[in-house]
Design a protein around this nucleic acid. Structure first.
Length: 472
RNA sequence: GGCGGCGUGCCCAAGUGGUUAAGGGAGAGGUCUGCAAAACCUCCAUUCAGCGGUUCGAAUCCGCUCGCCGCCUCCA
């Protein structure tokens, strides 16, 4: 079997064959740093993190590039509103984004280029387009891409240029030759940050940076270009037009787009005002619960974000760690299966089929039941196989990587802190109850347990003594 | 208006032509336990929005209807 996934350009699943055998180049559109990242960004970060982890686990040598748009209109506007320098604001949100990425358990990309650090490559691209008659300057430093001069325009998003023109809004900019033309370079107005160029001081258009940076770091063509589905048009269509207009034969081999996160069936977006910042959400819920929740739905289906959904996933995630801790305690060894082991064939099949993380999660949970069953039966060998499957699935999905006992302890402490529970007091109550149980004073023992339960603290009497946990 | 997607049990969600329709959460019964909890076992959709059609056979393909959503403007 081979890895296959949905290519936006062909609108069907295609077997993945990298340009160079064994090597994969992937470029993902990162964030524009004018605000904090929200759960929608989290889906993108986590999904492509899984793609990266899986490709590597599958044996590919991957170069993963994710850009940062650190100059654009929204950054300038926001900085003015905040009375802050544009680059100071950008850096602040870059730092926040990096914290979010780490908190979500995502690996850093191999290269994280910033628009402002790659201006020469962008100017070079404009010059090449101008030389081929695909770009025109209109004065004032503005340079546009001439869409009608790029015949295959619309091929990626399945749009017809005539339909687009017919549906286009009346353009205020009379200097554009066609309403579909878009800015490659924006001349600077007074007080705006700018870079020198042959067309005058200005800043790059949004689409331009991705064309320039992807080619710079990955070559032309490269294998995978990813992003949210709203980027298909116009962003990626325009990138394609720029790069091919400047002479690239193919630019990108596979286009990979994920669906949105929704709130009450509507797209989560700034304009609708229904965004949840990642940092705020992680104040309330365990990051790995959120991660499991986002991976429980296939990436091309919309996902409804809800506290209930996160809570369900968190419970499920804790069940896994409970079992992993049990396995550790039993002295169970992780066989560390690689992708060629027949034990993980189901997992590989799931992930090979269009990165079906939901199916991969199911494989992990089936192995989880098997693991507990083996542990119940004292079958360490069987347990080890199941443990290996869970860990392999976790390696692909970026889940279940923490040291189980420590993870559960820390989860408990965080929860206790949030609900103002005093751990030492609980330990004292447990000691008192154990004493009562030893004296067969079950009425007193049950009274103590009920009292704790009323506060959301649940006790478990095991062979090694009594432990407690919080209501998830 | 143009283009595209979705509708699977109480909830979330895989499955896109062929054995018993994954998995998670919730619920019910059981084993274990002083009693519980956890874990495990069993049960929980003759049915996949509705109606037609193609087929030996469809949740899966085609058509229509209803409902929901996205892109076409910055957007993950």
């Amino acid at each position: 079997m081979a890895l296959a996934f949905y290519n936006t350009r062909s609108r069907r699943k295609e077997v993945f064959e990298p340009l160079r055998p064994g090597k994969v180049s992937m470029y993902v559109c990162g964030v524009t740093v004018y605000d904090r990242c929200h759960v929608g960004h989290a889906r993108s970060l986590i999904f492509f993190d899984v793609v990266a982890r899986y490709l590597r686990w599958r044996g590919f040598d991957l170069c993963f590039v994710r850009n940062i748009t650190d100059i654009d209109d929204k950054i300038i506007k926001r900085a003015a509103e905040c009375g802050e320098s544009w680059d100071g604001l950008a850096q602040r949100y870059i730092d926040e984004m990096h914290r979010d990425v780490a908190a979500l358990g995502c690996l850093a990309p191999d290269v994280e280029p910033r628009a402002t650090e790659n201006i020469p490559e962008m100017l070079d691209l404009i010059a090449r387009l101008e030389a081929r008659g695909m770009a025109y300057a209109v004065g004032g430093g503005d340079v546009y891409f001439s869409v009608p001069d790029f015949k295959p325009y619309g091929a990626l998003s399945g749009r017809d240029l005539d339909d687009l023109m017919a549906g286009a809004r009346v353009e205020v900019d009379e200097r554009k030759r066609s309403p579909m033309d878009f800015a490659l370079w924006k001349g600077a107005k007074a007080g705006e940050p700018s870079w020198d160029s042959p067309w005058g001081p200005g800043r790059p258009g949004w689409h331009l940076e991705c064309s320039a940076m992807s080619s710079k770091y990955l070559g032309e063509p490269f294998d995978i270009h990813g992003g949210g589905e709203d980027l298909v048009f116009p962003h990626h269509e325009n990138e394609l037009a720029q790069s091919c207009g400047a002479g690239a034969e193919q630019f990108v081999r596979y286009w990979l787009h994920h669906a949105f996160v929704r709130i009450d069936k509507e797209k989560m977006s700034k304009s609708l005002g229904n965004v949840f910042a990642i940092a705020d959400v992680l104040e309330e819920v365990e990051a790995e619960g959120l991660r499991l929740n986002l991976l429980s739905t296939h990436y091309r289906s919309p996902l409804d974000f809800s506290p209930e959904g996160i809570a369900e996933s968190t419970k499920a995630m804790l069940r896994v760690y409970e079992a992993l801790a049990r396995a550790d305690e039993a002295g169970c060894e992780d066989p560390s299966y690689d992708h060629s082991s027949h034990e993980v064939a189901e997992l590989v099949e799931a992930m090979d089929d269009d990165f079906n993380s939901a199916k991969a999660v199911a494989v992990a949970f089936e192995a989880l039941r098997e693991l507990n069953r083996s542990l119940d039966a004292g079958d360490l060998k069987g347990a080890s196989v199941s443990l290996g499957v869970i860990k392999a699935a976790g390696a692909c999905l970026g889940l279940f990587q923490a040291e189980p006992a420590a993870f559960l302890d820390s989860y408990k402490s965080k929860g206790a802190g949030r609900s103002g529970v005093d751990e030492a007091e609980i330990e004292r109550a447990i000691a008192a109850r154990s004493e009562a149980r030893k004296n067969k004073d079950f009425a007193e023992a049950d009274r103590i347990r009920d009292e704790l339960a009323a506060r959301g603290i649940y006790l478990e009497d095991g062979p090694g003594g009594t432990t407690w946990k919080l209501e998830p």
